[in-house]
Every structure is written in structure tokens, then in C-alpha cells.
Simulated scan of single mutants.
Amino acid sequence: MIDPITLQQGTDWRAQAEVFDEIFFVFLTLGTVIGIIVVSYTLWNVYKYRDDGSEAPEDFDAPVVGELPTGQGGPKAKKLFLSFGLSAIVVISLVVYAYGLLLYVEDGPDTGDEGDIEITVEGYQFGWEYFYPNGHSEMNELVVPADQRIDLKITSRDVWHNFGSSDLRIKSDAIPGETSETWFTVSSEEVQEQGGEATYLVECFELCGSGHSAMKGQITVIPQDEWEEWYAGTEGDSEGANSSNVESDLGTPSVTGSAVGGVSA
């Protein structure tokens, strides 16, 4: 099994998006190669054993529908067990490989809880509110630093939602009275590629009411020093800290049976 330690070197952690892209590429490549081999071998046998109207040799052991080609240790049996053995090796290797990577995605990089940023995400009809450790909150825009593991605690104040960003490959339920967890990280290289500020679309992936399609937000990633300056400026800022103020502006959300049930979008 792949040791999750190999997926991180110092602060160069593998982002979830990178891990999922690698898994997809490996499975696509192997699937294509194996598919070409299998189809080519099948077509070769179709040509080799085609019916050309001539008499079959006396020692020809023709396949029979419904019969396993095990024979008595003959060539058909060897081909069967060879193909089975190779298939088992490929499948088991892929399972072990993917499982090791998915464990890393599930647990995240081991940072020793030093420097991690934990942010609470609260969904409501129809938007997102982000609560920072210092009590500051932001509506619909999550501002975080690059090269940092960001831990998200996700919940909802009214009906079922689902917080996710396709670009970052993160997706987690937002359920009233419960808290789900996920994490992500964005490298400074990716931030620089986007001109010094990387932005990612946030959407709700749970059908939560009439405004579901408009329930969008944004994750903004900036360099560490810029974020520290921004974060220091939020000290003592009570903007949006009291969620009741938001509810008074938006109106108290009504919990309907159809919205609570939710249908994954």
C-alpha cells in the first residue's frame, strides 16, 4: 500500500484535485492499454480460427459453448490460467494503489495540527457563511492562504445542502444539527499561474429549494503574507459574526418536507 507520507514533502502536499486526476489518468491509461491488447488478441483469434470451409485437423480441440477451456492441462488451460493470473495481478495492484491514495484524501496530510486553519462553513437558503477562528465571518467568499491545509467543518442552519467545488475536487454534506469534515490545499505555484489570486467556484450539490441553482460562492486563495495581513485586519470585526443578523435580513428559512429530503444534484 502506498504510504501517505510519500504524498507529502514538507509543505508540498498533494491537493485532492491532483490525487483524483492521477487516479483517473492511471485507470484511463491502463484501461486503454489492456483494452487494445484484449481487442487485438480477440481479432487475431477471429482471423486465425475463421471458418474458411476446409476440413479441421483431427487434433483440433474446438471450443464448446458453456464449457470452461480447462482440458487436461492442455494449451487452452494454460491460456485460461495465464489470463486469469495476469488479470488478478492488475486488479489487485490497482485496488491497493487507489486505496492508499484515497486514505490520504480521507485523512489529509499529517501536519501535526501546526499551522492548520479550521473554518466552519454554514449553509443556508441560499448561500454560504464562513466562520474563522477569530470570530470573523464572510458571506459567500472564503479567503484562505496558499500552501496551507484548510480544514472545513460543514453544517447547515436550515435544510440539507451539499458544499462542493469541482475544481478542488471537494464535496461534503451540510446537514442541520450535524457536522461533516473535508480539507483542501492550493499551492502557491497555482496561485501565481492565476495572476497572484486563485479563485474557485463553490456550489450546492443538493437540491435544497427554489434558489438552489443560484446558491453559489467562491474560494479565493492568496499568498500567505497577503492573507496574514488580511486576516489581521479582521480582528474584532463582527461583520456577519452573528448569524441571527443574516437571518433577519434574509428572513427566517422555512423548512419544508421536500427541501429537507433533498435530492442529490
Rank of each mutant, 00 (worst) to 15 (best):
Y99P: 03
R14V: 09
V64Y: 02
E67M: 12
S165M: 02
D107F: 07
E228P: 00
L102N: 11
N242D: 11
V33N: 13
F205I: 02
P57R: 01
L142R: 05
D151Y: 09
Q194K: 04
G209H: 04
D151H: 14
G127L: 08
F184K: 08
L101P: 00
G233R: 09
S87P: 13
W183S: 01
S87V: 00
Y104R: 00
Q194F: 08
L7E: 13
S188H: 05
F25W: 15
V191T: 08
S137E: 02
G164E: 05
E141Q: 13
S137V: 02
A241H: 01
E58V: 09
R169E: 07
T70R: 00
G164C: 08
L82F: 14
G74Y: 00
Q9W: 12
S156P: 00
V19K: 03
S40G: 04
V33M: 13
Y130E: 06
K76G: 04
Q192N: 15
S40A: 10
V263N: 14
A214N: 12
I222N: 05
I34K: 11
E226M: 03
R14I: 14
G10I: 11
V65N: 08
Y49P: 10
S187Y: 14
S238K: 10
A56E: 12
R14L: 12
T11A: 10
S264A: 11
V39G: 02
G196T: 11
D151R: 14
P109T: 11
I175K: 15
I175T: 15
I222A: 10
A174H: 03
G217V: 05
G236E: 08
A241S: 15
G164Q: 08
F131I: 11
V143G: 02
W44F: 04
G164D: 01
D113K: 10
Q194T: 02
Y104P: 04
I92M: 15
S210W: 01
T179S: 05
A98W: 15
E226G: 04
P253I: 00
T199W: 14
L250Y: 06
F184I: 06
S238T: 11
I119E: 11
V186L: 01
